[in-house]
């Protein structure tokens, strides 16, 4: 097993052992989805109409919950220095952490989404589109989020500032993700929106390790 896989497995193990890992994000996701009908009423037509947007926003917020600890734990206990001196480049370290975060939050959220789509009276086609859009788009949430996490890793209250700097940058993900669902609901083709989402996601996963690594480097210099 190489260093990358070693770090990935260790982060997944840590996520599983600290407070149930995905369970927390999943519960939050389901809870938000439950509160929305309580707020807007039980009109099934309306719920189906807003499902794509609501579930996408809820998924992004759920993924944000665990993001602030992405680098912070390792920074505080000195592991980050040890990891930085390993044969692994910091860019690869960032990518491993993005992947670990996605596997422990983004992917479980995606897998849960068809169930929540049922609560929102979504048909099979839009529900499948939502599933696909989450599958394609949540890696971008982890990737862009990793930039924010690395920028705020030395802050005691970084969890408050992280959403402020990350959420505006994630607007395209929500727009294309929920847009694909809306298009399918209107009987149109969601492929174009999913393609745009995939392009954003690909770019984010490709580029954000560099920004995150630069930011980790600057924080180690303190």
């Amino acid at each position: 097993m190489n260093s990358f896989a070693t770090l990935l497995m260790r982060d997944l193990r840590l996520a599983a052992r600290s407070g149930g890992g995905a369970a927390l994000a999943l519960s939050f996701f389901a809870l938000v989805a439950t509160l929305v009908p309580l707020g807007v009423g039980a009109d099934l037509k309306l719920l189906a109409r807003v499902a794509g947007g609501v579930l996408w926003v809820a998924a992004v917020l759920s993924a944000l919950l665990s993001l602030d600890r992405l680098f912070q734990g390792d920074y505080e206990d000195g592991s980050l220095e040890v990891i930085a001196l390993s044969p692994l480049a910091l860019e690869a370290v960032a990518l491993a952490k993005i992947l670990a975060h996605w596997l422990s939050t983004g992917l479980p959220l995606t897998l849960l989404s068809p169930l929540l789509a049922l609560l929102f009276n979504l048909d099979v086609a839009p529900s499948l589109t939502l599933f696909l859009s989450l599958l394609i788009g949540t890696p971008a949430v982890s990737a862009v989020g990793a930039i924010g996490a690395s920028l705020t890793l030395s802050l005691k209250r970084g969890g408050l500032i992280l959403p402020l700097i990350i959420l505006p940058l994630l607007a395209p993900v929500v727009i294309f993700g929920a847009g694909a669902v809306a298009l399918v609901l209107d009987g149109m083709d969601g492929i174009g929106a999913l393609a745009l989402l995939a392009a954003f996601s690909f770019g984010a996963v490709l580029l954000s390790p560099f920004a995150a690594a630069a930011s980790v480097r600057l924080n180690l210099g303190g």
């Binding site: 920028l151 727009i175 294309f176």
Partner: peptide
């Protein structure tokens, strides 16, 4: 340094945000 990194990430992202909002 942190603010500079964020500003550059934002600079890359703003045209994309603008495009996505127009699409929306």
């Amino acid at each position: 340094r942190a603010a500079a990194i964020l500003a550059l990430v934002g600079a890359v992202n703003i045209p994309i945000i603008k495009f996505s909002v127009e699409w929306w």
